[in-house]
């Protein structure tokens, strides 16, 4: 059966979302157009508002509505600590862990030379400006423990050191509740190298 053009366009648009296949897209579209008409209008308004208002934080590149995101604008946060992450989802993950009181810098990706993503695309200029502003004392490089993430961390650590600041890298090792037998060799080697005195 062929859908009418407007319905087909809606289904296509929904399919562009992560985790949505053709079946789910169709189900969502039907739901929005039948019992969910009220919620469809709410969704429409919310989407429009978000598109108009949400931009990037001037300081850390996190998604936000104002000039500064809630973390950068919060005077309670420790401005001397800066945690560099790859994506907004990483900020949320660290915030939920609850142990961090400093600020963030969001790269929106990692170094990926084959895709043409270099320091400029990752906001190296904004990062330098932040270091040059003089509030930061320590930079925690929390990029992912992949080859790309390590390369990114190394590059940024050079910038940090050029500003005579301390750069540190998050530890990698055995996950909490894990068993050594099932941990891969690379992780285990890191865990041994980064052992702590008791």
């Amino acid at each position: 059966m062929q859908h009418s053009p407007a319905l087909a366009a809606l289904i296509d648009a929904l399919r562009g979302l992560p985790g949505v296949g053709p079946k789910s897209a169709q189900r969502m579209a039907f739901n929005l157009l039948q019992q969910g008409r009220g919620s469809a209008q709410t969704l429409e308004k919310a989407l429009q508002r978000a598109l108009e208002r949400v931009g990037r934080c001037r300081q850390c590149r996190m998604l936000t509505e104002g000039e500064l995101c809630s973390v950068c604008a919060n005077p309670q946060r420790d401005a001397a600590l800066l945690c560099v992450v790859e994506s907004p989802a990483d900020v949320v993950a660290i915030e939920q862990s609850g142990g961090y009181r400093g600020r963030y810098f969001v790269l929106m990706g990692h170094l990926s030379p084959l895709d043409g993503i270099g320091p400029e695309q990752l906001g190296a200029r904004e990062f330098e400006a932040l270091l040059a502003a003089g509030q930061v004392r320590e930079v925690i490089l929390a990029t992912n423990p992949t080859v790309e993430g390590e390369a990114t961390a190394h590059l940024l650590s050079q910038l940090v050191r050029a500003h005579k600041l301390q750069a540190s890298r998050i530890a990698h090792g055995v996950p909490v509740g894990g068993e050594l037998e099932y941990v891969d060799g690379g992780t285990l080697a890191h865990a041994m190298a980064g052992r702590l005195a008791l």
């Binding site: 170094l111 030379p113 993503i117 270099g118 590059l155 050079q158 050191r161 050029a162």
Partner: peptide, 18 residues
């Protein structure tokens, strides 16, 4: 070659921070 372009950008940063 995209890696060349990125390598140049990285070299600029390393040069500036050296």
């Amino acid at each position: 070659l995209k890696t060349r372009v990125v390598a140049r950008a990285v070299a600029r940063i390393r040069g500036a921070s050296a």
